[in-house]
Structures are given as structure tokens and as C-alpha cells.
Amino acid sequence: MRIPCPYCGERDLSEFVCRGEVATRPDPTTLSAGLDALYLRDNPAGPTREHWYHAQGCRLWLVVERDTRTHAVTGARPAAEAGS
């Protein structure tokens, strides 16, 4: 798999670390909302947004759009600009 880092260009999967689906942070106000945010993932069969870290490159955290059925990567932009 190859990921188009907006800073470094298209790079090999082995340079990145995947954190998983872009998720909301645990809501401190209710326990159940916090647990849902921590442990429940949509895990869609299809397009999904994930956090990837360009650990062996520019150290940017990226929001990568990927189709879980085909591993087709359709976009990647800095998490800082993605408003997540």
C-alpha cells in the first residue's frame, strides 16, 4: 500500500504507523459516551477515515481516506488541517 503524504509525496506503507479510525475523544461528562468513544468503532466495509503517522518521514499525523474493501487510498491531509 502507498500513502500520498502531502509533505513528502507518495510513500510506502512501511514508513507509516496506523492509529485507527478517526474517532471522537471520550466525552468526560457521561461514562457510556466515553466508553463508546474509546472502544466502539464503526469498522465499515467501504470508505473510512483513519489517522496515520508518517513516523519514518516528516512526522505529520495524517487523516487518510481508505476503502477497507480494496485498500484504495483516495486522499491524505494533515490532521491539523482536517478539523478532526
Partner: peptide, 17 residues
């Protein structure tokens, strides 16, 4: 060391840019 660095970068870039 590496894990904390990655965590801090995540917090800064993804949570509180």
C-alpha cells in the same frame, strides 16, 4: 521514547493544532 513522541505529536496535531 518513540511511543511518547508519537503520542505528543498526535495530541498536538490532531487534537489541539
Amino acid at each position: 521514547a518513540g511511543r511518547v513522541m508519537q503520542h505528543l505529536e498526535y495530541c498536538h496535531q490532531a487534537l489541539w493544532p
